[in-house]
Nucleic acid binder design. Structure first.
Lengths: 334, 334
DNA sequence: CTGAAAGCGCTTACAG
DNA sequence: CTGAAAGCGCTTACAG
């Protein structure tokens, strides 16, 4: 392994000079600088990032933490982050951490173990202790889609989205509504699901309808197949459901639709359904699926750009809240 | 920031002892060990990973490099990797690097800058120099979906997949076939696209048909919308195309189908189409899209598990080749 | 303009 | 069983 000392030896200077020259210090002659650069090139020298970070106190990596990265929500946000990285000429690395349980442990280690300069959490809810830890350690934290008093909170108006979706069902004459919620944390509903449930219930109430608790369904992993299972569960008792708000998203909604089709249930004649996320396929399935669109790409893009500005000192780190608005996309499934 | 010395002071021992105790050295009394653990806990001590890695010479991170992570191919592989991580009790971190150009630069820096202990490349083709660099530095490299003589190569039989797809079209009576290729590298076709093209042409030849060069189409970003554009391009000249092999994947194929529908072209009566990847929505769009399925999830799972075994010494790192077989999923679009 | 020294926070022989 | 010392590869005052 070639180190700064090897370069120094070849260039015939001290390793201090190499360090200075390599980072373009103005106190180095153009001549010695060239010597150093040439030697570095010849030896194919690359600074050891660990050593550098250890003394600098910064790692140049931004951590992105989520329960998983393989679902549509995370994927769209990642797309935005990627685009932002490309548009920038800074050089932060993105470190993805998938963590199902023990969030606090991972987050604590990320910060205190000096793995990252800042973090972006996706649908992860940090405890107040962790938030304080980050704040005490000057490690900026942007939390997307969850509550995090004391950090930068970026949320979508899920209440409003759900309200619109539900109203859309009601306006088309549906009366016996069901809701499908996603519950990946396995103990408590995440922020967005909580809000969607509230929006759904409120819309029902505001329109003088009643909600039957039996019409509350849960899925866990946001898989297509879970939608199929949910539909079967719906059929178990004398089913009078005529409208489904699939708050768990379009993929699950698609599964419900396929099973409904197999079961000769005509959508939207016998049953209306609306999803969430407006994924690309929703426009081309049969019938096209109504949905609620969220600006996930933008959110990812902005979150990264902001983190970058905070880390390079262009913007001050100041905990606050930012809410994005969803949009109803009405299609033939309702 | 609390360091090992702070813990030592509180525990009333030397920092050496702390280091030993924390990692469960057998040469430490149970008593002092407890003292140390208590002190560490009280101070909320977390070892600085940078310092630790610097002296260990290993980082405990595995780099996953791709052009982007937001497409279906990468997503499915990521799913597999995630599952593998969860099934394991080792503690490697996954570092995702998205890099459009200058692959070699990134890869060199990853290795020489000691960012990672090993890398998994997705559809990224490393130069022979880089492969040698990794090998010289004892940094294992697994390359998925590309050529990499001297590293572990994991590929899918794209030639065979394309051949099956094309034959499927031909068997249903199609004669004037088109192919849509993805070309994200912007200079040379990637391995899988090259192979798919060959399989396609060979099948045509083997069945005594002819290929019209005009029927060769390219897209760049694997976007749904590009499929729509491609279909419009197909319509430009007196179109006699009656079968499309969308080697660029199901998302693009879906775009083609939507545009065809809008144009009152009946699938499969007037036009057959088959995609690649068998994404979840292919089963529910109208009509259901034939496709070629690849075991991406398995590939991701196995690649990670293997890397882990190599890094912890359970398996020897030995460059070789592994080929996975694709599977034809016939649906109504052909 | 350049170099010797100290230090970042850890681990690992080596004494005792 | 425990501690003093050296060292990982770098950067940053501080002299000269």
């Amino acid at each position: 392994m070639v180190t700064i000392k090897d370069v120094a030896q070849v260039a015939g200077v001290s390793h201090t000079t190499v360090s200075l020259a390599l980072r373009g210090s103005s106190s180095i002659t153009e001549e010695t600088k060239q010597k150093v650069l040439k030697a570095a090139k010849r030896l194919n020298y690359h600074p050891n990032h660990l050593a550098r970070s250890l003394v600098n106190g910064k790692t140049n990596v931004i951590g992105v933490v989520a329960n998983f990265f393989s679902s549509n929500f995370e994927m769209e946000i990642l797309k935005g982050i990627e685009q932002s990285i490309r548009a920038s000429d800074e050089n932060y690395m993105i470190n993805l951490f998938a963590t199902l349980e023990k969030n606090d442990k991972v987050l604590t280690d990320l910060c205190l173990g000096r793995h990252v300069d800042g973090v972006i959490l996706l649908s992860i809810s940090p405890s107040p202790e962790v938030i304080k830890l980050y704040s005490d350690n000057n490690c900026p934290m942007i939390v997307v889609d969850e509550v995090a008093e004391g950090a930068i909170e970026v949320t979508m108006d899920n209440y409003h989205g759900a309200y619109m979706a539900t109203e859309h069902l009601i306006n088309s004459g549906r009366k016996d509504l069901a809701i499908v919620l996603g519950d990946s944390s396995r103990d408590e509903l995440g922020l967005s699901m909580k809000e969607r449930k509230q929006g759904f219930l409120q819309a029902i109430k505001d329109h003088g309808l009643k909600f039957n608790e039996r019409n509350l369904f849960y899925i866990e992993d946001y898989y297509f197949e879970e939608g199929q299972v949910v539909f079967k569960r719906m059929q178990r008792y004398g089913n009078t459901i005529d409208g489904i708000f699939c708050a768990a998203g379009d993929i699950v909604a698609s599964g419900i639709m396929l099973e409904a089709k197999n079961d000769r249930v005509n959508i939207p004649r016998d049953l209306s359904i609306i999803g969430y996320d407006d994924i690309f396929s929703s426009a081309i399935i049969d019938p096209p699926l109504s949905s609620i669109r969220q600006p996930l790409f933008q959110i990812g893009k902005n979150a990264y750009a902001r983190m970058e500005r905070i880390l390079n000192g262009t913007e001050e780190y100041k905990p606050n809240k930012l809410v994005y608005e969803p949009q109803l996309i009405a299609r033939a499934s309702v």
